[in-house]
């Protein structure tokens, strides 16, 4: 049995002269939560974008649930649910209309019950009736998560799913994701919250300057000192300087 949901090897992407992702290897076990962490500009979103097909890689291979995702994009699209960070929705639709639109795009018949359940579980009763352009970031995240789940994918790829989400909604989202993974699904999430990774994830990959600097089970990567301190250790070589900014307090 193939225990790997997503296997990335040698993934590389260069924008102009800037190498955003440099020979990244990533292995995500089936039926697990996999966290991707890294400083701003580390290459997490670019890696995720390439994995799901929003960005064309310059080099590398992506194996998704036993098949070449780059060679067979339609299959990968059918098996993957994606919540990208910072991309627009059809902004004139309400959340509920967006979900019906997604159901239509994917040919899901009798999707009304699923949509109602998602709206209820994610606390979107009000947000689902509001045009997305007028919704808060948190509500948009929840609507985005609902559309990613709607077609019952095998792999969920979530970029900052908890950003700007209130604690109660975050708890509901965690519960939904745990149910998804408990049912055999796999979740990859990119986040800046080390606490979230320690609480939720089985494995973690630390990306820094476009390269993987640590990967493995969370407990192993974190070691004795905890993930947050370990993370700072891993990326501190290029941390911001330590000037005391005395001018800032002199006035």
């Amino acid at each position: 049995m193939d225990e790997t949901a997503l296997k990335i090897r040698g993934l590389t992407k260069t924008f102009g002269t800037y190498r955003a992702v440099d020979q990244v290897d990533l292995t995500v076990r089936s039926g697990t939560f996999h966290g991707m962490v890294g400083p701003n500009g580390a290459g997490k979103s670019t890696t995720i974008g390439m994995a799901v097909g929003l960005i064309n890689p310059d080099a590398g291979t992506i194996d998704l649930l036993g098949a070449d995702a780059l060679a067979d994009r339609p299959r990968a699209r059918a098996l993957t649910g994606v919540l990208p960070d910072g991309l627009d929705f059809p902004e004139r639709l309400t959340g509920a209309e967006l979900l019906r639109y997604c159901a239509g795009l994917r040919g899901i018949r009798d999707a009304a019950a699923r949509i109602d359940e998602l709206i209820e579980v994610l606390g979107l009763v009000k947000g689902a009736a509001t045009p997305l352009a007028d919704c808060s970031t948190g509500t948009r995240k929840k609507v985005g998560l609902a559309q990613a789940l709607l077609h019952a994918p095998r792999l969920l790829v979530l970029d900052e799913p908890f950003e700007a989400v209130d604690p109660v909604s975050a708890a509901a989202i965690r519960r939904v994701l745990r149910r998804f993974v408990a049912g055999g699904g796999t979740t990859v999430l990119s986040t800046h919250s080390m606490l979230l990774v320690e609480q939720l994830c089985d494995d973690v990959t630390v990306i820094h300057q476009g390269r993987v600097v640590a990967a493995g089970p969370v407990s192993e990567v974190a070691g004795e000192i905890g993930l947050e301190e370990r993370f700072v250790e891993l990326v501190s070589a290029d941390a911001p300087g330590s000037a005391d900014l005395s001018w800032l307090i002199s006035g």
């Binding site: 994917r106 018949r109 009798d110 077609h151 519960r175 939904v176 149910r179 049912g183 055999g184």
Partner: peptide, 22 residues
């Protein structure tokens, strides 16, 4: 798990032409 999300996240849409192999 007994009373958590009631939504079925693991069953493919019925019938779902685009996902019927899920």
């Amino acid at each position: 798990r007994q009373d958590a999300a009631e939504i079925d996240l693991v069953t493919p849409p019925e019938p779902a032409p685009l996902n019927d192999a899920t």
